[in-house]
Design a binder for these strands. Structure first.
Length: 378
RNA sequence: GGAGGGGUGGUCGAGUGGUUAAAGGCACCAGACUGUAAAUCUGGCCGCGAGAGCGUACGUUGGUUCGAAUCCAACCCCCUCCA
């Protein structure tokens, strides 16, 4: 008996619409999870995040273990209370930092030794410690197995070795996690861009048995087409009854095309990071709000969106804020972006329920390409 | 009236004979960002040209020199102090 029931309400092709029930609330899928690395979705209040329609957010083992420290978060009542986010919370295991901080870490069979990017101090992260931090100390609803995010461009041999390590770390993570009533553990499928490896990783992860299955090691440089191909031959090997989570993805088009291939959950820093960097997302792609064309543009980003940032502020004002280096620029653009991503998943859920996902996907692709053509024409 | 300092590309500001179409910052024009070492990074930024290159440029005019933003003279303007 798994901790979290996953009910699928409708399917349309490979696309699925469902509800994952946790003790902190339900998650409607397809779901986009805003990233709250350091116990904050950067530049947003938790109330705002909630109001955009986000059901669940992320936290990060690596960052929180360094600061303020996992034991301290535990003493302060756990990550939910600490951050005031009362909905479901998923934590990443630190596996992504194995990749992104590759210069600051040393890998062994036992685990990863990191040098803190903050003060250079040394920290050990093993599968067991990662689970202890995520599940026991932070109190995540969904914990991720420790894995290695395999770098893109490696040989099949290297990809296999990396995958095998992740599988062993997964089994140890599962062992450490045990069985829990109100918390879940997700495994992570690796295998880079090799079909046989992806399948084997999926099959062996299923043998270990998880509450959900993530696809890792994508959007690390392989490109959109290759990512779609990998999904084409990976999701069919994942259990239909459990949620599939594509880690770290992505742009709106990536979300739509991944849902079309059977993915249920996403997380990405893009809406908040690019929001801080002056970019607003839409069906037509990114809008660089700092562009000169907006200095006199009195229209809002998306009046149809039920989000003040998208609806009540003119592009001219957002342009002014960004150019002036005002904090509010990052806040409003992040707010809009999160709201837009939530609205996108909502539209996908409704399209799947209505059996109209194919039409939605077609229209979305047309808009996206239209936007691309327009930008390259500039 | 006297003494001193200064005028450099949109702007602030280096540069005091050639390697200077002229550092750097800002502004401006664009681009990137995908399980967050990122409120960050990259490119462009006198004109024409795809380019080699050509033209123009350091207050103005003239001079010295093979060569001047840099040296000299006169003029114009600005600032500080003293009367």
């Amino acid at each position: 008996m798994t901790a979290f029931p996953y009910t699928i309400h409708a399917t349309d092709g490979a696309a699925r619409c469902g509800t994952l029930s946790t003790s902190h609330g339900d998650i409607q899928t397809p779901a986009f999870m805003p990233v709250g690395t350091a116990a904050t979705v950067k530049a947003l209040y938790m109330d705002q995040v909630k109001a955009t329609g986000a059901d669940i957010i992320l936290g990060n083992t690596y960052h929180l273990m360094l600061r303020p420290g996992a034991e301290r978060v535990k003493r302060l009542g756990g990550l939910h209370k600490f951050s005031t986010w009362q909905g479901p919370m998923l934590t990443d295991s630190g596996g992504f930092q194995v990749w992104s901080l590759s210069k600051l870490r040393k890998m062994t069979e036992e685990g990863v030794k990191f040098r803190s990017h903050i003060d250079g101090s040394e920290h050990n992260l093993t599968p067991e410690r990662s689970i202890e931090i995520q599940s026991d100390l932070l109190g995540a609803d969904i914990s991720m197995q420790l894995d290695e995010c395999t770098p893109f461009g490696c040989s099949e041999e290297e990809a296999r070795a990396s995958m095998e390590l992740s599988l062993r770390w997964g089994a140890r993570s599962k062992q450490a996690f045990g069985t829990r009533d109100t918390q879940a553990l997700f495994g992570i499928v690796q295998g880079s861009v090799f079909e046989n490896l992806r399948r084997e990783s999926a099959e062996r992860s299923i043998e270990t048995g998880y509450d959900g299955y993530a696809i890792g090691g994508l959007a690390v440089g392989e490109g959109f087409e290759v990512m779609c191909e990998v999904l084409d031959y990976t999701t069919p090997h994942l259990p239909t009854a459990r949620p599939r989570y594509l880690m770290g993805v992505g742009k709106p088009i990536d979300l739509v095309e991944s849902v079309a291939r059977g993915v249920d959950m996403f997380d990405c820093v893009l809406p908040t990071r690019s929001g801080r960097h002056g970019q607003a997302w839409s069906d037509w792609g990114p809008i660089n709000i700092k562009r000169a064309e907006f200095v006199d543009d009195d229209s809002p980003l998306m009046p149809e969106l039920n989000c003040p940032a998208s609806r009540d502020y003119s592009k001219a004002y957002l342009n002014h804020l960004f150019r002036s280096g005002e904090y509010l620029s990052a806040m409003l653009l992040s707010w809009h972006n999160i709201a837009y991503f939530q609205d996108l998943t909502r539209r996908m859920r409704e399209a799947i329920k209505a059996g109209e996902f194919a039409a939605f996907r077609k229209q979305f692709n047309e808009r996206w390409q239209e936007g691309q053509a327009q930008r390259s024409g500039n």
